[in-house]
Amino acid sequence: MSLTRQQIVKVSLLARLRLQDDELDRMTHQLDQVVSYMDLLAEVDTEDAEPMAHAVEQTNVFAEDHVLPSLDRESALSNAPKRDEQCYRVPAVLGD
């Protein structure tokens, strides 16, 4: 598969990135190369292969439902780029 600039524009919105024109050109070129290389996998017969999402199979890992102390609000908000005494602040969320 080969990647078009238009696809890159679409993906950049999905990824919440904003690429300038020259960045878009470079990105299209570089990712197209990489993606073409990845097409190598098409030749592998994976008919009977179970997808492997974890490096080591583990199941049923649980924690008990006992409350532990939360962060105090000051620590929780201490890294916020914009905040008030109680909350994080962001440009208005539209709709909804």
Binding site: H66, L68, R73
Partner: peptide
């Protein structure tokens, strides 16, 4: 393991 109690002051029941 943060509490789920309703009505706590904002951002007092959070952790990393």
């Amino acid at each position: 393991r943060c509490s789920t109690r309703f009505g706590a002051p904002p951002n007092t029941q959070t952790c990393p």
